[in-house]
């Protein structure tokens, strides 16, 4: 799966602005570096007259005070204008989403609007292109940082505070994000995806997410649902449309339709579910889910088939 996670291949307007700033600074920085090194080489190897001219307090003044003062003021002005622009009021039709960082995954909420109910999902955010998205960022435990480099700079998620970030995707595609603030043991395995869709596709997806989980179709899936409710999965996980209403772990109502499981640690496939349920402490050590090593293979397969069916 192609997923962008790069500062210099932007798919959103904030990232584009910053990439341009970056290129300007890389070019300017390279020129200054070459200039300084060139001067140092001249100072050592240059002709007598040139060297004598360099060997003065004037050089220190011009090179060390005037030149940086002028270039830095120019650059700072550019940087400050971009900084100030971040304060513009949110657009009226901005899409509002809430993301909460938890050790080591992301809880995602699309708040209720009008009579449309709230949607809770995890580790994946879908957004429309061409529309501003304002995300409220919170944390329930330690500090995390929300970062999708191809769309925008990062903003920390700090317990006790709500921060905001705005995304404005300009190109459809799948963008990978990752926690950027060290948040304990499995920090390296706390990633997620942002899928930017055409507005119409996005509305379809949203409508689908609002539905409760589709009931199991096959016998295997049915067995899986039973196991889900009887082996304790429902203690932590919710599946709308079933009695499972746990809130400790990710909501699994449409988990089969997501790109990955375990915060972008494993690709979404029945085999991944089985592996995860049994072996999660090896795949992502210290994560809060116990490993269900006691489940026999056939039960695992049933659970996996059921979860995979929750599109």
């Amino acid at each position: 799966m192609e997923a962008h996670q790069a500062v210099l291949s932007p798919g959103g307007s904030d990232a584009e602005t910053i990439a341009t700033l970056g290129w300007v600074m890389f070019a300017g920085g390279s020129a200054i570096f070459l200039g300084v090194i060139g001067l140092a080489v001249y100072a050592h190897l240059g002709g007598e007259t040139l060297r004598r001219r360099l060997a003065s307090r004037r050089l220190v003044f011009v090179g060390g005070v005037l030149f940086p003062a002028v270039t830095l003021t120019a650059l700072l002005t550019y940087g400050l204008i971009l900084t100030g622009a971040r304060l513009a009021a949110p657009e009226a039709d901005a899409l509002r989403i809430e993301v909460t960082g938890e050790q080591w995954w992301w809880r995602v909420r699309y708040p209720a609007t009008g009579d449309a109910p709230e949607i809770v999902t995890a580790n994946e955010i879908r957004i429309p292109i061409g529309r501003q998205v304002e995300i409220r960022l919170a944390s329930v435990d330690v500090i995390h940082s929300f970062w999708v480099p191809s769309l925008a700079g990062k903003v920390d998620m700090i317990p006790g505070t709500v921060n905001r970030i705005r995304l404005h995707a300009t190109r459809t595609g799948t963008y990978r994000g990752q926690c950027a603030e060290y948040c304990g043991a499995a920090h390296a395995l706390m990633a997620f995806y942002v899928v930017a869709l055409e507005p119409a596709q996005f509305e379809d997806w949203l409508a689908g997410q609002r539905q409760p989980a589709a009931g199991p179709l096959t016998a295997l899936q049915k067995q899986g649902e039973g196991l889900f409710l009887s082996t304790g999965c429902n203690g932590c996980h919710a599946i709308r449309g079933t009695p499972a209403a746990g809130t400790i772990g990710p909501d699994l109502t449409h988990v089969g339709g997501r790109l990955s499981i375990a915060a972008a640690t494993l690709p979404n496939a029945a085999a991944s579910f089985a592996r995860w349920i049994r072996d999660n402490q090896h795949i992502k050590p210290n994560n809060r889910m116990p490993a269900f090593r006691i489940l026999p293979d056939d039960q695992l397969a049933a659970l996996a088939a059921y979860l995979e069916s929750l599109k």
Binding site: L21, M25, L72, T83, A152, A180
Partner: peptide
């Protein structure tokens, strides 16, 4: 100097 620019730092901070 690059990372002193707030927007650029928001991308590169903690990377």
């Amino acid at each position: 100097v690059m990372v002193a620019m707030v927007p650029f730092d928001l991308q590169t901070h903690d990377t």
